[in-house]
Amino acid sequence: MRIPLGNPLQLLLLVCSFALAGYAGVRLLAGDWFGVALWFVGAAVVHDVVLLPLYAAADRALVKTAGRHVMYVRVPAALSLLLLLVWFPLISGQVADRYASATGLSPDGFPARWLLVTAVLFGGSAVVFVVRRRRDTKERPPAVH
């Protein structure tokens, strides 16, 4: 069976791309090649087969429980988890000692500030929910009740 080549221009572009990636890649892998390769491929694998299925499953579970009000929970929860994901080393305190000794700043505020932002996000969402619900009940004719 003959494998079709595909668009020759695309092929040329991809070969050029691989050549440059190879040139930089050899240098990227010059030190701890196994560790770097593991991080490079591992990042894609962990994202695609762990992180994404996990948050998709959590979202499905949330939709089942919260029904049509799902956005009032989904938005603050996702934003809070996003902050946790990005600033995990600081929030978890795993770099607290190095951070404090290097910068002279206190590492203690990060978990508290993250919780505070989370509280504000959920609080804001609750306020929007209550306001919209009140408005809806007012606008609806009494007969509907």
Binding site: F18, A24, G25, A30, G31, V36, F40, W87, P89, V95
Partner: peptide
């Protein structure tokens, strides 16, 4: 965040990694 857990020095990893990424990004 000063969390130096990656396998090597930040400068070469981030610099060469950027070129590998960018070559695929352009394509």
């Amino acid at each position: 965040q000063l969390d130096y857990v990656f396998p090597g020095s930040f400068y070469p990893l981030h610099f060469y990694g950027a070129w590998v990424f960018f070559s695929a990004f352009v394509a």
